[in-house]
Design a protein around this nucleic acid. Structure first.
Lengths: 186, 186, 186, 186
DNA sequence: TATGAATGAGTGTTCATTCAT
DNA sequence: TATGAATGAACACTCATTCAT
């Protein structure tokens, strides 16, 4: 039985399977074979057919995972105007994603760590929005003087590195938000 | 031509070569073949002979890299009593290691990310000393109230994540130290 | 030059080559490399492609060898109704296979001795038919009282162990049949 | 600490360890490494030092195992004059060895199956004594006319093939003795 | 008598990819 | 759009054995 689907739909299906495989087996463990098995496809040939090469697949996988997270973030942060509230929500939301969307979060981290050439895409996701918010806060006088790029990057690092913490995730998220708010608010 | 060396010396030689290979090619790219080539040895059989398996080699490699960093850190921090100075020195020193000992730093990160079973060893290196210093600082009233484990972990994440930053490293280090000192003091 | 054949045909081709290699080099000596060489294939990768693992290959090889023997046996024994004739034919036929189909016989023995998990398959081949015939003979009063499983097993052991005997094979076969008929009849 | 022992004692110590390793891991699984580990020796070099090559080790191992079995058999059968009693005792004793000396019995079988060049040694152990007894029995008129070599060989095969039988060992032994006594007496 | 160190050949298995319809 | 078949390179690891004291 040969199931025919549109090109775009197949790519998306494979990318979503790849997100889960990368998250669970790590980047190195995410072979075509495992992805094919996880997606219930007939052979690895399907991946080779729909993607130029592994890099192409991984880029699509990364974008798929980032989109899922970004969509949720937009819903959540929409309408928040207070800068401090925004910063707290941002941090707590992303740490919370470790529980609600662990596959996406981990896939983003794994791919980011193993595909240096994707740095630009990842950089925008990790710190783009944050930098803009921090700059606005500084202009409004809510935040003190500091290098927004360093702080934004450190916040992203702190959020990413929260994964695997043994303690209660919500408590961890609050502590993390407290940490950066103490530092940013002048 | 058979060159014979003591067991301990060979292990150390191989581990040091492994540090460099892991740093430059990543954990997944650090095959026995590449390590052997880099070390100028005759065959991969030499690694199998001196190490029980790859995990054994990687643990030794990790310890080798950690020792190199720890030794320098002990020299540097020895005699520093002021808590705030200590915190600044600690952060700036480790970020500086990205320039002076990039292989060791990256090998530690790569192995840590790919060998979950080494977590205890890595955890002690990353946050052990820092947690003790932060607790002391709180007792002395220099640092405020915060969860020491979260802050120590976030500092470690911030330092690790400094790698690859495009800006001037020393400036980055100072900004990072400023960030955490603002948050911890007061 | 890439030669393409159907999956089933390739599996059969490889399994048949494996029968011969196992028979001639023993189970331990039957490496993928030797089988590939014997079959005139391009690389060991072809085996890995068509079989899940070595165990899968060996099971297929065993079944291939058993089928070849069983098919001949069915032709030979078909129509024989007399129990004593049947027993004699069975024993003489199998000993004769040592000459006409030595590769199959030896491959079965080698694989059986080295893959304990295949015991059920082998047990059925070695003693299944025999046990049924002996039970029938006992019901008909042709054979005396004895433990059918022990006798069937001993006959199979006696036939297998005939391999390598220096004397004339046909004479050996007759003597062996005489031995068990004396014991079973009356 | 270097323990020095006489040449002969070392050889015997290693051979006895090899008996157990061959019995438990099969011939193919009996590597120098496993034997060294089982014997508590410092390195495989000790085996290479005391034995010309693996064949030399295996021959010594085979002789060691055969001697252990032969010694017990001599004790047991000494004084038995009745031919039928002797045949029954012989069979039941050897099957019983599967329980009392499984390592020796299995090592003999494994080495015999994998070292065709040891056939002469093994042949004498397996059928030598038996053939002489059968010939005597025929001369005395206790046993019928049959080819003693075929019968002796088949008894040996039947005893060897008793290993792994699921039923009660003693019952199996009695049935086996019954089988051959029915056939021989007569 | 014993040992530490080294070795080349070989094992099955996995990898992403290409050929040919 | 999909597929079955094939591929060469690489992987960690094990083998019995030899070199050099």
């Amino acid at each position: 039985m040969q199931v025919t689907v549109t090109e775009a739909a197949r790519r998306q299906q494979i990318a979503e399977a790849a997100v889960e495989v990368v998250a669970r087996h790590g980047f190195a463990g995410a072979s075509f074979a495992k992805i094919v098995e996880h997606a219930g496809l007939s052979s690895t040939r399907l991946i080779s057919y729909h993607f130029r090469d592994k890099s192409d697949l991984m880029m699509t996988t990364l974008i798929s995972a980032i989109s899922a997270v970004d969509d949720r973030m937009n819903e959540r942060l929409d309408g928040t105007t207070d800068r401090v509230d925004m910063l707290r929500s941002y941090i707590e939301f992303l740490v919370g994603m470790l529980t609600t969307h662990p596959d996406q979060v981990r896939a983003i981290r794994e791919i980011g760590a193993n595909m240096p050439e994707f740095a630009p895409v990842l950089r925008d996701f990790r710190t783009g929005r944050l930098e803009r918010q921090l700059v606005q806060g500084q202009r409004e006088g809510v935040f003190g003087e500091f290098d927004v790029r360093v702080v934004a990057r450190t916040i992203a690092n702190g959020v990413d590195g929260a994964d695997g913490a043994d303690t209660d995730v919500d408590a961890y998220a609050r502590e993390l938000a407290d940490l950066f708010i103490r530092s940013c608010v002048g």
